[in-house]
Design a protein around this nucleic acid. Structure first.
Length: 461
RNA sequence: GUGAAUGUAGCUCAGCUGGUUAGAGCAUCAGAUUGUGGUUCUGAGGGUCGUGGGUUCGAGCCCCAUCUUUCACCCCA
């Protein structure tokens, strides 16, 4: 029984058109990564489950794709214990591997494992798919690519500056107007401390993050239901009113966090970043200090980055890049006191945005690489053409021959046409004898007779 | 995990308050043109109407379940 084939929820196939466009984005990002001195690495699609668990928060753990143990996974399992402890426990008994959830944690694992082969600070880039068992929606997939650049083994704020420059360069190059948002986890910690809710920092930041989306009233409600005291929420009030440029926001924070050393440290770092950025001279597209920015995973400890599209041609409101500094991610794998900072481009979202803005049409990307197709007139002509084909390729010209020698010319021409191959060379009995080959320009329809050498020089232009 | 919408040919969609054999455009293939594509004309193939159950004399249409896709929440690239 022939079943209609399908692919798992939240995954996609990419045809030649999409791949050409995606590769354009990948190559643009990769070019800038290399330009800034990052080196490539790759890690396996799967990691040991315990490498991943607990790094992304409770919600993150839930979204990790687990891999069922091979073989008889029931063997040796304590079924009675499973029955009493429930399915979460069962999963841990049957699964010891999982698909990677991001590229940062596997990178931290990589650094610890290869610490003696690496010279620090280590700047690496990594472009690979990640998987999340999330429910798909706009701009959200269960399999998607991240393009990460991280520096590990240096706590200099210069790294932050470089990363901000890098993201600005990439989005400028892709001609997407964006807003780069920065914040600092230490400022958020300071706020939590001032309000006396340090142990609720996660709930607090998650709620504040929604400020511009749902408004301060709703945020306060959420904070209440998450268990923060009314008193604390009151103390937070000035936060909801903070507007203006860097300077006025920072001045506000300096008073607000005057008594909290960690908060002041965060302000200091942020000021330093801005000072450094100015030293570079070049104007950035759009940089904003957003003290409500809390996104990012639990492991962030310093700077936090996020990039949003800020372009009238796009309706996408999610982020296309996320990142930040993590002071001790390698510590859990046994290498303490190593600080890292990194960013992650969400290329699937960037693709969606560029598609919406019709940017690909303007780029005129070509799917076809063949410059010329050799028509196939028959067995004898095919033999002759193969030598021509070889010489074309030797000369650096992308060329192909129609593989069926019984195919009608109409069929072969349509093939060249649909594949947008610009030239077709016809080699029949006449051409074989005279050595003068017929070349057809598919755009104009005009034909001329040329020697192979003339064809090579014509196509080499 | 929560809430909603959706599903008819490869694609985009028609299909009347339930009534014979489910249609169109595009795409594909073939012919008009046995050494010439993109235009045109002619023809052909392709559907267990997402799947399973139910109501009915009768279901693409109504009901239930399930899956897919999409959107929002949660969270995130």
């Amino acid at each position: 029984m022939a079943e209609k084939p399908s692919i798992p929820k939240g995954t996609r196939d990419f045809g030649p058109t999409e791949m050409t466009r995606r590769n354009y984005i990948f190559e643009t990002i990769r070019r800038h990564f290399r330009r800034y001195g990052y080196l490539p690495i790759e890690t396996p699609a799967m990691e040991n489950l315990k490498t991943l668990m607990g790094k992304y928060g409770e919600e993150g753990d839930r979204l990790i794709f687990r891999i069922l143990n091979s073989g008889d996974f029931l063997e040796g399992a304590n079924l009675q214990e499973i029955q009493t402890k429930g399915s979460l426990f069962a999963a841990s008994q049957f699964s010891e591997k999982a698909l990677r959830y991001d590229l940062t944690v596997p990178f931290a694992r990589f650094v610890v494992q290869h610490q003696n082969e690496i010279s620090f600070p280590f700047k690496r880039y990594q472009i690979q798919p990640v998987w999340r068992a999330d429910r798909p929606q706009k701009g959200r997939y269960r399999e998607f690519f991240q393009c990460d650049a991280d520096v590990i083994g240096s706590d200099s704020l210069l790294n932050e500056i470089e990363l901000i420059r890098l993201m600005d360069d990439v989005f400028s190059d892709l001609t997407i107007k964006t807003t780069i948002k920065i914040n600092n986890r230490k400022i958020l910690s300071g706020i939590a401390e001032v309000t006396g809710e340090s142990d609720r920092i996660v709930e607090m930041t998650v709620a504040i993050d929604k400020l511009d989306k749902i408004g301060k009233q709703k945020v306060k409600e959420e904070l209440l239901t998450k268990g923060l005291s009314a008193d604390a929420i009151n103390k937070m009030q000035p936060l909801f009113e903070s507007h203006g440029d860097f300077e006025s926001k920072l001045n506000f924070l300096k008073t607000f966090l005057a008594e909290v050393s960690i908060g002041l440290k965060g302000i200091e770092e942020t000021e330093a970043v801005i000072r450094y950025l100015n030293a570079f001279g070049k104007q950035l597209q759009n940089l904003e200090l957003d003290i409500t920015l809390a996104r990012g995973l639990n492991y962030y400890t310093g700077s936090i980055f996020e990039v949003k599209v800020n372009d009238s041609r796009s309706t996408f409101s999610g982020s296309v890049l996320g990142g930040g500094r993590y002071d001790d991610l390698t510590g859990i794998f046994g290498l303490p006191n190593v600080s890292g900072v990194g960013i992650s481009f969400g290329i699937d979202r960037i693709y969606d945005v560029m598609l919406e803005m019709n940017l690909f049409d303007q780029l005129k990307l070509s799917e076809t690489t063949s410059q010329v197709l050799l028509a196939n007139f028959g067995q004898e002509e095919e033999q002759f053409s193969l030598k021509i084909l070889n010489e074309l390729r030797q000369a650096g010209i992308n060329a192909e021959i129609f593989p069926e020698h019984a195919a009608k010319m109409k069929k072969q021409m349509s093939y060249a046409d649909s594949k947008k191959i610009p030239f077709v060379v016809l080699i029949g009995k006449d051409e074989m004898q005279s050595g003068s080959l017929t070349i057809k320009d598919m755009a104009t329809g005009q034909q001329e007779k040329l020697t192979l050498n003339d064809i090579i020089s014509k196509l080499s232009k």
